[in-house]
């Protein structure tokens, strides 16, 4: 068994990754909506997003709606693949009992 991916193997980052993975692969989500779905503070979410972005698992798109800056987020193909691998590894560890 390979080691579990340390980038995702932390509860907050796993929750963020799982939420982004539940979106359509062609979709991006605004920071406030993701924050609302996760119930995390803005600071905590930003910290973990930065780590996911550094690992090239999350793409951060900064744009404007009128004069208001908005940040949109989505999983990169590498992030989606890492999440799927991680989920499979967990299932194997648990012997498929929760599959």
């Amino acid at each position: 068994m390979d080691e579990l991916d340390p980038v995702i193997h932390a509860s907050a980052r796993l929750r963020i990754t799982a939420s982004l993975a539940a979106l359509d692969p062609g979709d991006r989500i605004a920071f406030p909506r993701l924050q609302e779905l996760l119930g995390m503070t803005a600071g905590n979410l930003s910290t973990h997003l930065r780590k996911l972005e550094d690992a090239d698992y999350v793409r951060v798109e900064k744009t404007h709606q009128g004069r208001t800056p908005v940040t949109y987020l989505n999983l990169t193909p590498a992030g989606r693949a890492a999440f799927e691998t991680y989920t499979e590894q967990l299932r194997s560890l648990l012997g498929g009992e929760l599959a």
Binding site: L14, R15, A22, L90, L94
Partner: peptide, 13 residues
């Protein structure tokens, strides 16, 4: 618990 987190977030979204 990690798998439960994944399932929980997937359901929430």
């Amino acid at each position: 618990e990690m798998l439960a987190l994944i399932q929980g977030e997937t359901t929430t979204v």
